[in-house]
């Protein structure tokens, strides 16, 4: 099991009250899975992805990354794991505006300390693989939403992570571009064997995933394997 959650809860203080964003969820993510976390807005999808991506600590419960308990690890340890083993894709693309598409994609490799020749080669390869070789020298504000999200996917994948978390990757795209992005992720999952966990509230999109984890009010209401197209 790549990631295992056991009775994970997450509470946020909101003024004088406490918001129970995740109310005790337990599930696991296998290697090479292509799973979607579905649910309406406010159901806790982003919070759950943040917890699995080691961006936040659970209030209680246990999160294991490859059997190692990472629920209470230090910030620097979490940074190290994210840098080496996790990729992220965001709804609003979150590219660095002062860097070109190529440089944005190259960033994780720089952080890993990979040598220039290998870095350039890997970046060119992923640019081709994601179909954006022709926009390498463009800055984010010169790109369309779909192109930006492809750059974000390439950035998430270039460092060969074990798992990629995508928080509503299609929410800011039109439906056609949204499907292209999901199919690209699906293709990369099948070809590269990268584990994808993404969130969406678009019923059209979550049909594509092989596993659907439905979340309502911070609890898992359904966890089903719907497409057996895993290689």
């Amino acid at each position: 099991m790549l990631i295992q959650l056991e009775e994970v809860k997450k509470d946020y203080p909101l003024g004088k009250t406490t918001v129970h964003a995740i109310r005790g969820v337990s599930f696991g993510i296998e290697e090479c899975e292509f799973a979607v976390i579905a649910g309406p807005s406010g159901s806790g999808k982003t919070t759950l992805l943040n917890l699995m991506g080691l961006l936040d600590h659970p209030t209680s419960g246990k999160i294991c990354f490859e059997d190692r308990d990472v629920s209470g690890i230090s910030e620097s340890e979490a940074t190290k794991i994210r840098k080496m083993r996790i990729g992220f894709i965001f709804q609003t693309f979150n590219l660095i505006p002062v860097l070109t598409a190529f440089e944005n994609i190259e960033l994780p490799l720089l952080l890993k300390g990979i040598k220039e020749k290998e870095r350039k080669e890997k970046t060119f390869n992923i640019l081709e693989e994601t179909g954006i070789g022709d926009i390498a020298k463009h800055k984010p504000d010169e790109l369309s939403g779909g192109e930006r999200q492809r750059v974000a996917i390439a950035r998430a994948l270039v460092g060969n992570p074990d798992i990629v978390f995508a928080d509503e990757p299609t929410a800011n795209l039109d439906s056609e571009t949204g499907f292209q992005i999901i199919h690209l992720m699906e293709k990369l999952n099948k070809i590269e064997g990268v584990t994808f966990v993404f969130s969406t509230h678009d019923p059209g999109i979550f049909k594509v995933a092989e596993r659907k984890i439905e979340l309502h009010d911070g609890k898992i209401s359904k966890d089903v394997v719907q497409n057996s197209n895993k290689k």
Binding site: G53, L55, E75, S76, T79, K80, R82, K83, M84, F88, F90, T92, N94, L95, I96, P97, L107, P108, L111, K112, R155
Partner: peptide
Amino acid sequence: KKEIGTMRTIGYSK
């Protein structure tokens, strides 16, 4: 803020 958050997410240290 968001960009700084993104950089932290992809592995930039403090």
